[in-house]
Amino acid sequence: MSPAWKTKALRAAQLATEVCVASGEGPVGGHLELTGDVPLCRGFGSSTSDVLAAVWAVEDALVRPLPVEEIARIAVRAETASDSLMFEGSSVLFAQREGEVIEDFGYRMPVVRVLGFGSRPENEGKGVDTVAFAPAEYDSAEIDLFAELRVMLREAIHGKDVALMGAVASASTDINQRHLPIPRLDGLRAVVRETGALGIQTAHSGDIAGLLYDRDDPDVEARTERGKRLLHDIGIHEQWIFTTGD
């Protein structure tokens, strides 16, 4: 295994091999080498990317394709809490510590332009240890609100309604503020208002966030550039821009 410290990926490869190889077929071995530049512990899905790469490598080597539901279970067994990156064709509500799909929304998320950024000051360090971070314990009001947001998100996905999706993201950010608060949220809300952003999304087990914009808005470039300047003005300098689905 190279690099040797990527033990989650190694565990995933072992588990996938056990599933792929029929009993009595004999021992199977190999060398797994992982390369990539996804930042660690930020909310970018670095460990899930490694785990899935390992599982897919085993699939290819043994010519034994696995159902995506099985891959999800392997990922959770390998890393305790997994992102839902294995579900490539649609958007899902995923129980990240059980490896089960709660709801498949049937379509991918509406396409948006994202002005991403690191939410914490550089002198505070970067990253959150997802496994060590205690899962949030939501109160009854938050659980009820999540149920409402689930309905809204379903409508946003089916109707390709980017404004409604932005509202869901902002509401989720407000809920998360009690559990993993990000600094300067009031200032970020002001940037949303001043630039006409759809909303703000934050990682629930990381330190990254993003302002969401309508990709098809004729003024999207100007709005994004103004957003960059306003983020700089409140001390946020680590930024990146991308369009979902690209």
Rank of each mutant, 00 (worst) to 15 (best):
D144T: 07
E18G: 03
A169I: 03
G116L: 06
V21R: 00
D214Y: 03
M86H: 06
V220W: 05
A136T: 10
L212K: 02
V58F: 04
R178I: 03
L66M: 15
L153I: 11
I143P: 05
A53W: 02
E238N: 07
L231G: 01
H31D: 06
G43E: 01
L52F: 06
L231I: 10
D186W: 12
A190M: 11
G45A: 10
Y138H: 13
I74E: 00
M152I: 07
D50T: 07
L32G: 03
C20F: 00
V38Y: 04
V38P: 02
W240L: 10
I102L: 15
E100L: 10
T244D: 03
S49P: 05
D161P: 03
E124G: 12
R229F: 12
V38W: 05
D37M: 14
A163Q: 14
H232W: 09
E194F: 07
R184A: 15
A147V: 14
L164T: 03
G30H: 08
T80E: 12
I234S: 11
L230V: 04
G29E: 13
G45K: 02
F94W: 08
Q201W: 04
L32T: 04
D37A: 13
H237R: 12
R64W: 02
A12T: 01
M165I: 07
T17H: 02
D233C: 09
S170Y: 06
A169F: 04
F242N: 08
R193T: 15
A95V: 05
V112L: 08
G26E: 00
C20Q: 05
L10I: 12
T173E: 07
T243G: 11
T35Y: 13
E33Q: 15
E59Y: 05
F146W: 12
D161N: 15
V101T: 08
H232Y: 12
A4D: 11
D186K: 11
A209I: 01
D60I: 10
E88W: 10
I71S: 00
C20M: 14
Q239P: 04
L52D: 00
P183M: 07
T244R: 00
F133S: 07
I175F: 10
P67V: 10
Q177G: 12
G227K: 02
M109C: 12
E122Q: 11
I74Q: 00
R189L: 06
L198S: 03
N176A: 11
K126L: 15
R97Q: 14
A171N: 13
W240T: 04
T195I: 08
K160Q: 15
S46N: 03
Q201F: 01
A72K: 00
F117K: 00
A53Q: 02
D217P: 01
L211S: 00
G245I: 06
L180W: 04
G235V: 09
G29F: 08
L93T: 05
